[in-house]
Design a protein around this nucleic acid. Sequence first.
RNA 1: GGCGCCGUAGCCAAGUGGUAAGGCAGUGGACUGCAAAUCCGCCAUGCGUCGGUUCGACUCCGACCGGCGCCU
Length: 306
Amino acid sequence: MSERVRVICGPTAAGKTAAALQLAARHPVTIISADSRQIYRRFDIGTAKPGLGELAAVPHVGVDVADPMDRWSAWQWAALAREAIADAISRQRTPVVVGGTGFYLRALTEPLASLPPLDEARRDQLGAWLDAQPRELWRAWCQRLDPGRAALGPVQWRRAIETALLTGVRLSTLHEGGGEASRVPVRYLLVDPGAPLADHIAQRVVTMLDAGWAEEVEQLRLDVPAEARAWLATGYGEVLAHVEGRMSRADMITRVTVRTRQYAKRQRTWFRHQLDQTLVTAVSPYEEGFLERVNAWWRAHDEETV
RNA sequence: GGCGCCGUAGCCAAGUGGUAAGGCAGUGGACUGCAAAUCCGCCAUGCGUCGGUUCGACUCCGACCGGCGCCU
């Protein structure tokens, strides 16, 4: 029997790192990053990756594990995380999952369904064809092939179509089967400053630019193709537009700030509804005794077994 | 001081006599292998103010207020 794995989550720029680092200062900790953008190499500043100092001070897993062009997935991340958790424990270190990608956390706690392997060549071929079709057609196909998923969005329609056509089975049917990987029992520390987050985000955008975000993008645009997944990270599109002279610096800053706030809002919605609230301890970095609460949360797990 | 144009939600904006398009922002939500992605719902009893004409006015008329432009 093992204790629940500690997970520190919360909207972007909320102070998750501060909580994690202060724990790492007093316990042997391995941080496992649950962040769908920090996986990409070279996209450093705009994804708020841990700095060299932090990486040297505390072992990190899940950062810089993919090339910007790679197709990555929640499934892959969960496999990586399971391995890292087991490895940390075997070394007498305490794994702490830190990140804001709710879907990744779910892949860990509720294993994604096992899917028959897709023929990559056929998938690419189908994908290329679909790209040339109107979205309305995707929706119509999804409606026929896997109606349960038609109410979602294009990304989901596409996935449902690929699965149905290439495996002959509906994705919804596969989901009913459940996953084969083991569920990782967890306990959450939800870090969220509340209303001040909006200002935090605005300040962080400027801080990132001061740290050389635009220069980073200047370099990336030289050899990272526009289709690369990594460009989907919040703000990179706006900074690129500015670097290429298509957007003023002022507009870029306001747009990046807005998009980041919108992302934080979606994260809050996820954490509010998708997490088992009985396992959540909510804290604000601004509240009285923040660090003590973090430490209390850490200790609360020591006795508990699952 | 005179003349002209304009004044519609936090912002941009359509409507020009029949009972307020759309976009942005905001907000609530969804989410089972791209998730910092993708998608969905809500969001002006009121159109600068007051008065008039009309069965009916954001739409027409008048005055006033505010903005812009031109003229003196």
